[in-house]
Simulated scan of single mutants.
Amino acid sequence: MATAKKNYARDNVPLSRFGVLVAQLESIVASAAQQSPDPLLCFDLLSDLISAIDEEPKDSILLWQRKCEDALYSLLVLGARRPVRHLASVAMARVISKGDPISVYSRASSLQGFLSDGKKNEPQRVAGAAQCLGELYRFFGRRITSGLAETTSIASKLMKSHEEYVRKEALYMLQNALEGCGGLAAAAAYTEAFRLIMRFGVNDKAPIVRIAAARCLKAFANVGGPGLGVVELDTSASLCVKAFNDPVSSVRDAFAEALGALLALGMNPEAQVQPRGKVQFPPAKKLEGGLQKHLVSPFVKASGVRFREIRICLTLAWVSFLQAILLKYLHPDSELQDYAAPVLDMLQEDTTADAQALACVLYILRVAVVDQMT
């Protein structure tokens, strides 16, 4: 009787703007078997839906939340195009956040189930589900940390896809999951995630996937490198330096940012996270000699056809490192001047006449030291 009364109440309440948009979305999904949803129509509708979620009161959202979630899920697993699946994923996270957040558990579980089902391997569908799951982690990661191990396993499977955009979405999903969970998930999940990034992501043949892998490494550093010791930090930093030989500039830039974040974490052992689990990790230690090994020496020794690009990447890594030292790890800005000496060490006697080397050093000192101290 109570359920019937509740449904009757919804049926007799005038449709809000949010309710109208949900009904339109349901209609599009219902007719998808006969006619593929028009991407432009879906894009406009989802844009309006997100605005309505922000503007509607919570009571109105609660009234239509389940129908909205179901319609968005159906649209995603139908195989929406990238702009549409992005908006659908954002709308899913927003409606759960504004309405009843408890549904994030069942929705994340259903997305994981869809992605784990090997029969449903149509690339557009997989990409949509992966993007939505990543968005849920971005909003609710602390609530669904227990699912990180399965999500990492799903990402490993998706990395075998022939479609580069599926592999990219797999790593973006993993990045959001790492950032959303912080260092609160089980140790085994982080170990597997790091292995996946290092073994497959950074060596992928597609530039967009390598960029996603670099962002995953940066995410690892930003959440305290759970489960990473000095060996793993040193290995990943060396890999970033190696990536500066990549022919694609956006890939090099992404690894430069990752290198700065990893070295900043290595210099702050008190910020390194020890994840929960049966495995006992060694005590956190400072990455001794990390700046000399990964920033100074590669700059001095840069050679080959891309030596200029390598120097620029190391310059960007220095800036990323020093910004993290000040803004993330909250060192006093007076400490920045202590890093001027190793920066100047990059100017050897035989490079003082090298205009590019001098320009790089001056850029680091101005942008990462002087500007941050003023």
Rank of each mutant, 00 (worst) to 15 (best):
F140H: 06
G141T: 11
R142T: 10
R142S: 15
R142C: 12
R143M: 12
T145P: 00
S146A: 05
S146T: 04
G147D: 04
E150S: 11
T151V: 15
T151I: 12
T152H: 12
T152P: 13
T152L: 09
S153N: 14
I154L: 08
I154G: 01
S156V: 03
K157Y: 04
K157C: 15
K157M: 06
K157V: 04
M159N: 00
M159K: 04
K160G: 05
K160L: 15
H162G: 11
H162Y: 12
E163S: 14
V166G: 15
K168E: 09
E169V: 06
E169K: 08
A170E: 12
L171D: 06
M173F: 10
M173H: 11
M173L: 13
Q175M: 15
Q175C: 14
N176C: 15
N176A: 10
A177Y: 11
L178H: 13
L178P: 01
L178S: 09
L178D: 02
E179Y: 01
E179K: 13
C181E: 05
A188T: 07
A188D: 05
A189P: 12
Y190T: 01
A193D: 05
L196S: 08
L196H: 06
I197V: 15
M198Q: 04
M198S: 07
G201H: 03
G201I: 06
K205R: 13
A206G: 13
P207I: 05
P207Y: 13
I208E: 13
V209K: 12
V209R: 09
A212N: 07
A213Y: 02
A214H: 02
A214S: 11
R215I: 01
R215G: 09
R215K: 15
R215L: 11
A219G: 08
A219E: 00
A219W: 01
F220W: 02
F220M: 12
F220P: 01
F220E: 02
A221M: 00
N222Q: 01
V223S: 03
G224Y: 01
G225L: 06
P226I: 03
G227C: 10
L228S: 11
L228I: 06
E232K: 09
E232I: 07
S236E: 00
S236L: 08
S238Y: 05
S238I: 05
C240W: 08
V241S: 13
K242G: 13
A243F: 01
F244C: 15
N245R: 05
D246M: 15
P247I: 08
P247D: 02
V248T: 12
V248F: 08
S250E: 07
S250A: 13
R252A: 07
R252I: 15
D253E: 03
D253W: 03
D253P: 00
A254F: 04
A256D: 01
E257H: 00
E257V: 04
E257L: 05
G260N: 04
A261M: 08
A264H: 07
M267G: 10
M267E: 12
